[in-house]
Design a protein around this nucleic acid. Structure first.
Length: 431
DNA sequence: CGTATTTGACCCGCGC
DNA sequence: GCGCGGGTCAAATACG
């Protein structure tokens, strides 16, 4: 019995590693096709460190909340290392603690990693673990001020790479997620410390400001119209290893932000892709994705505050092929950048599985979805979107090679080079 | 006593 | 230039 469990764990681990690799290729190819600049997109950038002056205390990893959101294969991988014979560990919980029903989350991303402007900072943790890794703007706020809505649409192919790099440093994007929660904050695996609270004008609910006590920043606010809705906005990148749950979330949302920030994309493409991403990343609900161009920064809002039409469940076997076109997990020898949606393929699989009942138009009921452009470019169905994306990337010889290698790997007994993807992801700050 | 939270003050960007 | 509002600081307070 134990032997079988060990074998299953091993297989699951291999499959996870393989799949992470394939997922990376998948997303990379998508991004390359869109000429997305791969920046440091893991999660949250440190904000204003020199002024924090807060007593950065010794939060040991062991004391961190282990309340995992089921957002990706990171959790699956974690499960592989934690699972017990009794149906998995408590470390990974799909249902949220305190009856928190995760409906949506709101992420932000600021891309300003131009090395000429970024200034490395030290933020050594008191436990001695050096977490120096990130950069800050020389003058806070510069990036945000430079954003010009719809500017992406003006980018021409003739732009030089320098220009594009410059553009990248001047843009700031947010990816928003709304969560139905009675808790004051969302538990994403990181430890947040409140440093301020303000009454926002026109909002009966106070806006609270939190910092990741491991060195990052993100404001969190509760939705005005519904006190049970928690609206969380993350900004910047963590500059420290993330716990699996936070890593999954950071990776997932950074992909959306990446798509959003694709300078060479037309607005239409961006909307389509973001919508596709949003639906892909969060297949468990009839989530809606909206992009606000009127906001100071382009914002992707994933509104999951609506009851899912179909309960999300994991594939019955973790070894099932996650891609709707039958592609199998790939070789696990490639490190997985942290800025990838960790559940990309799995959710694709689920999307394909449930597409028949999830074809309700995105944004049919979300407040943000009144955006006319979003409406006009919305794909006719999710299945179409998935098919189109799948066909597009499958035509890429690189992708085909990866898939072939993956199949070979699986047929040949699986495993492949099982580099520790989690490890590489943890270490990565995406720079 | 150490740490986390609260809260008024301050800073700064932006619009008029 | 001025006022407004958002974001942050830091002293005071609460808590374990």
């Amino acid at each position: 019995m134990n032997q079988e469990n060990e074998k299953l764990k091993s297989m699951l681990s291999h499959a996870t590693n393989n799949f992470n690799s394939l997922r990376m290729h998948f997303v990379t190819l998508m991004q390359e096709r869109n000429q997305i600049k791969y920046g440091s997109l893991q999660g949250h950038e440190v904000m204003d460190h020199e002024k924090m002056g807060d007593k950065r205390n010794k939060h040991e990893d062991a004391t961190m909340p282990r309340q995992f959101l089921d957002l990706g294969l990171a959790s699956l991988a974690d499960e592989a290392s934690h699972c017990t014979t009794e149906g998995g560990s408590q470390d990974r919980s799909i249902s949220q603690p305190n009856n928190v029903e995760v409906m949506s989350m709101d992420y932000s991303l600021k891309e300003n990693y131009n090395s000429k402007e970024a200034v490395p900072i030290d933020c050594e943790r008191s436990d001695g673990r050096d977490v120096r890794a990130t950069f800050r703007e020389e003058s806070p706020g510069k990036v945000s001020q430079s954003w010009i809505p719809n500017k992406a649409a003006d980018l021409s192919p003739s732009n030089t790479s320098d220009q594009q790099a410059q553009e990248a440093t001047m843009r700031k994007a947010r990816v928003s997620v709304r969560a139905r929660s009675e808790a004051p904050t969302i538990t994403d695996g990181c430890q947040w410390r409140k440093y301020g609270q303000k009454m926002a004008k026109g909002n009966p609910c106070p806006r609270a400001y939190y910092r990741c006590t491991m060195a990052a920043g993100c404001p969190v606010q509760r939705c005005a119209e519904d006190r049970s809705v928690l609206m969380t906005t993350y900004e910047g990148n963590h500059n420290h290893p993330l716990p699996p749950a936070a890593m999954a979330m950071a990776s997932t949302t950074s992909a959306a932000a990446n798509t959003l920030l694709c300078g060479s994309m037309s607005i239409t493409d961006g909307l389509v892709n973001s919508n596709f991403l949003a639906r892909t990343m969060l297949p468990c609900s009839s989530s809606v994705a909206a992009i606000s161009a009127s906001a100071p920064f382009p914002t992707v809002t994933l509104d999951l505050t609506h009851t899912p039409s179909v309960p999300f469940r994991r594939p019955s076997t973790p070894l099932q092929v996650p891609f709707p076109n039958g592609a199998a997990p790939g070789l696990g020898s490639t490190p997985v950048p942290t800025s990838l949606p960790l559940d990309f393929g799995r959710t694709l699989f689920n999307q394909a599985k449930f597409s028949g009942v999830q074809m309700a138009p995105a944004g049919s009921d979300g407040p943000q979805l009144s955006h006319p452009k979003l409406e006009s470019v919305r794909p006719s169905s999710l299945a179409d979107t998935v098919s189109a994306a799948t066909a597009a990337i499958a035509a890429d010889p690189n992708f085909t090679a990866v898939v072939a290698a993956a199949i070979t790997s699986i047929i040949g007994g699986g495993g492949g080079g099982s580099s520790n993807n989690n490890k590489s992801s943890e270490n990565g700050t995406g720079n």
